[in-house]
């Protein structure tokens, strides 16, 4: 297990955003966290990435406990891709600068070569290198964000709804790119999504979250077979098949 999470809790003022979450991810695996908006799945990811300090419980990465201040080595090994490619790139920095920054932070060599290679790897040519984010489309920006995460050669990638801000036609492209990169580099993915189809496409195993709790953990095969045990998961699967008036009216809140 490269990553194991035990009894993870995050509390914001007056709100238990994540409550005793527990899951483990194998090296080279793609693991999905599914749930509706506000279910706490992104918060789990932010706690993993070290963007939230006030979590409780235990997170272990490659055998090391992650409580307390994280060192630079951790950020070298674990990188994150954000949901909104319009917000995650600095508006005043060229793509070149965005890609050079992680290299500078981690003091890596052969920067020119690495930047060119990273752009090529995500399917953007040299022509994009000195553009500003506002000159790029959403899909192109997300490719830059992926290149930025991969340029320090991490082992694990945290993906926060990497395609939900993109057009449907672009979504598949970006997902296929991520899948190909994972196979080529033997990366471990932790992917958050509200879209069951995306998770079924990308992940081998997944956890379903509702109101800060993990209600069910299952593999993709049983997701496809529709053999969910938990009533919330069953409803989520029903909802993902499309809108149905009778079904919508039968919904109630799960606590």
């Amino acid at each position: 297990m490269i990553l194991s999470v035990e009894n993870l809790g995050v509390e914001f003022v007056g709100l238990r955003a994540v409550d005793s979450a527990r899951f483990a991810v194998r090296r080279g695996e793609s693991y999905g966290l599914v749930g509706e908006s506000g279910s706490g799945k992104s918060t789990v990811l932010r706690a993993l990435a070290g963007l939230i300090d006030n979590w409780t419980g235990s997170i272990r990465f490659d055998g090391r406990d992650l409580s307390g201040k994280r060192d630079r080595t951790f950020y070298r090994r674990v990188q994150m891709v954000f949901q909104d490619p319009y917000g995650s790139l600095h508006p005043r920095q060229t793509i070149d600068r965005a890609l050079a920054e992680p290299l500078a932070i981690h003091g890596m060599d052969r920067r020119e070569e690495r930047i060119e290679k990273a752009l090529e790897e995500v399917g953007l040519g040299h022509g994009f290198r000195f553009r500003y984010p506002h000159q790029l489309s959403g899909g192109q920006r997300q490719r830059v964000a992926i290149a930025r995460a991969l340029i320090v050669e991490p082992e694990m990638l945290l993906l926060d709804e990497p395609t939900s801000a993109l057009d449907v036609s672009i979504q598949a492209e970006v997902l296929n790119l991520l899948d190909a990169l994972r196979r080529r580099r033997n990366l471990t993915f932790v992917m958050v999504s509200h879209n069951l189809a995306v998770v079924a496409h990308m992940c081998a195993r997944l956890a379903v979250m509702n109101r800060g709790r993990i209600v069910e953990e299952m593999d993709t095969a049983s997701l496809r077979a529709g053999s969910a045990r938990d009533p919330y998961t069953q409803r989520l699967m029903a909802a993902s098949r499309g809108y149905d008036r009778a079904l919508a009216e039968s919904f109630r809140a799960f606590d």
Partner: peptide
């Protein structure tokens, strides 16, 4: 609070 600042934080800056 912008994502691009969170992104550099997550890079270890």
């Amino acid at each position: 609070k912008a994502d691009y600042i969170a992104a550099v934080q997550a890079q270890g800056a």
